[in-house]
Amino acid sequence: MSLLDNRSIRVSGGILLTIAVCALAGPWISPQDYLTMDFDRQLMSPTMTGGQIFGTDDLGRDLFVRTMLGIRVTLLVAVVASAVSLVIGVAYGAIAGFVGGRVDAAMMRFVDTLYALPFIFFVILLMVVFERNFLLIFVAIGAVNWLDMARIVRGQTLSLREREFVDAARLTGVSTARILLRHIAPNLIGIVVVYVTLTIPQAILVESFLSFLGLGIQEPQTSLGALVDAGVNQMEGASWSLLIPASLLALILLCFNFLGDGLRDFFDVRHTN
């Protein structure tokens, strides 16, 4: 069975790919740029003239280019942050699960403790204390999201380790490294892929939440969250400046969630067959 047989995967993957391509190519094709202000063209509604299909903002900047840049930033932050949480989470979870015993108990106790922390407020606290630092956003989001990954990978590793094929390999003298590589890792891939896909929208949420509050990405740089924030201030006169970034943000999140669901079904089916 191929990945593309699953409709959720096909449709949401296709939409995400299209959005990513537009975000990469759009600003390059458009005659406008994201910085130039034009006080004669403030809050223009979407029009085809000059390629300003999303209109302009209150400073007369082209919203299409800004939106595409915002998507780039949003996706970049999300992907990098998810990669951070992936690396930490998988390593932490796999070690806890494979070593087991007291080490596992202590490591998981730590995760449980962190779970109880109101992370988002800590992130805000960090932002307040250390100024708005682009790098800090990655770290902050990654630090929040690795917990889930660690728990899931640990649970899966633990149950794999108890499976008899691991005992069979141990008995015949297969090395621990090879057991991890050939017996544990391949059986983890499915669940890890699913949860990375589901981590990305969470990272997007955190980033856009911070940017919306003015604690994330700073002007003149922008992200979808920041654009929604700007749009809220103009929504009574220029509703498009809210609706366009808001619906794009929602669409991206929706697609990632559907993609994750589709992948979960895909791997579930393969598992039970």
């Binding site: 949420l205 929604v228 809220v232 808001a246 969630n257």
Partner: peptide, 13 residues
């Protein structure tokens, strides 16, 4: 999938 800060302004709108 839709964040609170998107829902809120859209509902208000």
């Amino acid at each position: 999938s839709i964040p609170v800060f998107v829902v809120a302004p859209v509902l208000v709108l």
